[in-house]
Structure formats: structure tokens, C-alpha cells
Amino acid sequence: MKTGFCLVVLMVVCSAPAHAHHVLGRPSYSLNEDSTTPPSMQVETQIGDYYVTYMVFPAFPSPNQPGRVNLYASRIDNGAPFDGEVAFKVRDDSLFNDDEELLGVQLPDDNVFRQGFEFREAGNFIVRAEFEAGGEPYRIDFPLQIGEPARWGPLGLTVAAIMLALITVNLVQRKRLVSDKIRSGRQDRAG
């Protein structure tokens, strides 16, 4: 019972909303390898007064491969670009992890904030961009994945496992279940 609840809690935490993102440079209906444009990952968010676009080159960098984050910020109301400085921080994307590392602080170059990186290990990371505009602090988290993406998320796996267990038990025990149900139903009422 306890493990069941832990599992559910985990699932709820893990299913925190992902940002809208997609891989550019490839036809959207097929993410296969034969494309001449180097793919890049783009995430767009809307925060306070700003649209913030975040890009990763290449889309899924491998360990020990230099990559780059580009950040664009412009006002929602009139499209004017943000011209202050942006700090980039990174942390491991696991539960209860607060170890943040500063990647660098960047000034805009032609309205783009560029930040290079190189990771030694594969894994899922969170890149946090921080800046201040109009006296308000802005803090935005973006995903960064080093290495191959997982095909099935924890949620899909759990749901699939539960459905499989349900169906298997029902198929294997088909005959016995009616009498079992009657027995437990009677105990249920007696107790």
C-alpha cells in the first residue's frame, strides 16, 4: 500500500508539465536522421511582459560535445528586445536537487544571449535563465537533455504495467474469479 502511494506521488511529480518544444530543421511528421539542416531544439515561453525563446544546438547534444544555448527575449506588447544581462545556471533534473552551477552571465549580441556548454555525462538537466526587467525578477527553467531521449516516460511505463497486470490476472484466473468474488463479497458484508 505504501509503495503504491509512493509510486503515485512519484508519478504526479514526474509528470510536471513540459514546456512546448519541438525540433526544428526536420519535417515535423518524421524525426528521422536523413536531414541536411542541423536540428535544434526550441522552447518558447511567455513570462511577465516577455516572450522568451530558448534554443539548444544541437537538439540532443551528446556527452563531451560542445553545444550552445541561445536565448531571445522580447516584449509581448510591442516586440522590443530585452537589453539587460541574463545569467545562465544549470542543475541536474532530479527530485530534491538544489545544487546549481553558474554557466555564465551574458550580454545581448544582436539581441541574442549566447551561452556555450559541454557536459561530460549524459542525463537530463535544467537550465535556468535569470534576469531583471522593470524591477521584477524573471526566472525561467528550460530542459536540456544530454544523450538519447527515453522512448517511454515513467508515466507511460506505469500505466502500461498496471493495465498488463490487470489483464493478465483476469485472463489467467478467469474461472476462479467469480467464486472468489462471491467469497470476498460475503466476507465483506459479514465483516
Partner: peptide, 15 residues
């Protein structure tokens, strides 16, 4: 459908 399969699972677990 799933709830009834689930009841059957419960009956089996009970056994």
C-alpha cells in the same frame, strides 16, 4: 471495463 477487471484483481489478491 477496467474497474471490473480491477475488482477481479482484488478478488485474486484477496485469495
Amino acid at each position: 471495463l477496467l474497474y471490473e477487471l480491477n475488482t477481479n484483481l482484488a478478488a485474486w489478491l484477496h485469495r
